[in-house]
Design a protein around this nucleic acid. Structure first.
Length: 418
DNA sequence: ACGTGTTTAGATGACG
DNA sequence: CGTCATCTAAACACGT
C-alpha cells in the first residue's frame, strides 16, 4: 500500500527541485496530485491509472489533452459563473444535509475542478499553504495565492473566502503573526503556525473534527463530477483507505478556525442579540495579483524542505515543547542558519525551515512517518496542468518553478499529529 | 484606495 | 437540545 501512495504521490513536484530531496522520497512526497485526487469520502478502489501521472508525478491525463485543458471541464472557465463562498456555496458545504449531499465525486481534482469545494477547512488550507511555503513564514497574499493555485474552486469563488482566511488567521490561535521587519517592504506581516498548538494537537487536547463533507458546487452537482469523456481532467482518484485516513487525520489535527485553540476562547461567546443584517456590499474583486516577488518565493514549491516533524520534534510529541518554544521565542534563523538545519527522516534528508526551529532530531518516534509522508503527498503542485485548467490567473511562477508542490514531509508531519 | 488584521455576530451541521 | 466546529459576513482600524 504504502508503495502505492508513494507511487501515487509521485515524483512530481520535486522534479525541478533541485532541492535536496532524496530521490525516492522526494518523488513520493510532493504530490499534490494526491490531494487533488483524494476523495475524502469515497475512495473507490484505488484505481489510479498508471498513466494518471506523468513521469513527473503531475497529473496528467493519459493521452489526453493535458490536464491543462481543464477548461473543457471547467464550466466556470466556460463562462458559467459560480460563486463559491457565497451563501449558495456555503449551502453546498454546510447547509445541505449530509444525506442529501451529492455524493462526492470519486475523482476530484481540486486543482482544476472549480465546482467542488475542497473538503478542507480554511485552517487546513492555511496550513497547507504554510507548509507549501518554502519559507517558514508566509504572507497573507501568499496564502491566497497558494490556495487559488491549488484549488480551482477558489479561483472562481467569490473573494469572500479571503475574508474567511483572514478571519481564521486572526482568530485561530494556532496561527501566529510575524511582523514584517522594518526594512521589509510590503503590506502586512507574515504568518506561521504556532508550535504550541501543534503540540497540543499532538497531545490530543483537541477534539477531533468531524469529517469534512465534500462540498460540491450546486452547479457542479447538477453535472457529474465525472470528467468528460474527453478525459480532460484527470481522474483518478481513489486513494486507498489508508491514505484517506491519513488525510482525514490531518484534517482533524489541523482542525479549523477554532480547532486549534480558538475554540477555547470562543466557546460560548456567540449568538448575542441579533443585529440587523448589514447591507450587503458588493464583493470586491479579489486581488489575485497578490504576490510580490518575495511572496512568490515563499510559495516556492515545497519541495522538500519543511518538516513539521522537525518542528514538533520528537520531544514535542511527548508533550514537551522544548524546541518549539525556543522556536517561538527566538528570532528566526538567518538563511545561513537555516540552511544548516537539516534533518534526516527515515534516511531522507530534510531541510528544516528556520523559523521552525532547529530541530535536529529526526523525529520519527512515535510516528509513522512513512505513512505521514505519504499522507502529505497530496500536496503537490496542481498546476502543471493548471495552466490549462482553471487556470491560474497568471503564472506567478516560472514553468520550472511552477510547482507549488507541498512537501510531503510537511504534510506528513501534520498527519503525524494525530 | 486598497490590503491587511481584528473583532463581532449569525448560521448551520455534527456530535454527545 | 446544548455545545462545538466551521463558515460567512461585515464593521472598523491601520498601514502602504
Amino acid at each position: 500500500m504504502a508503495e502505492n501512495w508513494l507511487r501515487l504521490s509521485g515524483a512530481g513536484a520535486v522534479e525541478e527541485g533541485g532541492l535536496e530531496e532524496p530521490s525516492g522520497l522526494d518523488d513520493s512526497l510532493t504530490s499534490l496530485q494526491w490531494l487533488q485526487e483524494f476523495s475524502i469520502l469515497n475512495a473507490k478502489a484505488p484505481s489510479l491509472p498508471p498513466g494518471g501521472t506523468d513521469p513527473h508525478g503531475y497529473h496528467q491525463v493519459p493521452g489526453s489533452a493535458a490536464p491543462g485543458s481543464p477548461l473543457a471541464a471547467d464550466p466556470a472557465c466556460l463562462g458559467q459563473p459560480h460563486t463559491p463562498g457565497k451563501p449558495t456555496s456555503s449551502c453546498t458545504s454546510r447547509s445541505a444535509p449530509a444525506g442529501l449531499q451529492a455524493p462526492p465525486p470519486d475523482d476530484v481534482d481540486y486543482a482544476t475542478n472549480p465546482h467542488v469545494k475542497p473538503p478542507y477547512s480554511y485552517a487546513t488550507l492555511i496550513c497547507m499553504a504554510m507548509q507549501a511555503s518554502k519559507a517558514t513564514k508566509i504572507t497573507l497574499s501568499a496564502i491566497y495565492k497558494w490556495i487559488t493555485d491549488n484549488f480551482c474552486y477558489f479561483r472562481h469563488a467569490d473573494p469572500t473566502w479571503q475574508n474567511s482566511i483572514r478571519h481564521n488567521l486572526s482568530l485561530n490561535k494556532c496561527f501566529i503573526k510575524v511582523p514584517r521587519e522594518k526594512d521589509e517592504p510590503g503590506k502586512g506581516g507574515f504568518w506561521r503556525i504556532d508550535p504550541q498548538y501543534a503540540e497540543r494537537l499532538l497531545s490530543g487536547a483537541f477534539k477531533k473534527r468531524r469529517l469534512p463533507p465534500v462540498h460540491i458546487h450546486p452547479a457542479f452537482a447538477r453535472q457529474t463530477p465525472q470528467e468528460p469523456e474527453t478525459g480532460t481532467w484527470v481522474t483518478p482518484l481513489a486513494i486507498n483507505p489508508e491514505a484517506q485516513q491519513l488525510l482525514r487525520e490531518f484534517e482533524e489535527a489541523t482542525g479549523g478556525e477554532t480547532g486549534w485553540g480558538a475554540g477555547e476562547v470562543r466557546a460560548g461567546h456567540k449568538r448575542k442579540q441579533p443585529l440587523p443584517k448589514r447591507v450587503a456590499k458588493a464583493p470586491r474583486p479579489s486581488s489575485t495579483t497578490l504576490l510580490s516577488q518575495e511572496e512568490q518565493g515563499e510559495l516556492e514549491p515545497l519541495k522538500g524542505d519543511f518538516d513539521w516533524e522537525a518542528i514538533f520534534d520528537a520531544g514535542t510529541l511527548g508533550g514537551e515543547l522544548g524546541t518549539l518554544e525556543a522556536l517561538d521565542l527566538s528570532p528566526p534563523l538567518s538563511p545561513a542558519d537555516r540552511s544548516s538545519v537539516d534533518l534526516t527522516v527515515h534516511g531522507h534528508h530534510i531541510d528544516c525551515p528556520a523559523t521552525w526551529g532547529p530541530s535536529t532530531e529526526p523525529a520519527t518516534d512515535g510516528l509513522d512517518f512513512d505513512e505521514t509522508f505519504l499522507a502529505t503527498s497530496f500536496l503537490q503542485h496542481p498546476w502543471d496542468e493548471s495552466h490549462g485548467s482553471c487556470l491560474p490567473p497568471e503564472p506567478l511562477f516560472e514553468a520550472g518553478d511552477a510547482t507549488l508542490a507541498v512537501d510531503l514531509n510537511e504534510w506528513a508531519s501534520v498527519g503525524a499529529f494525530l
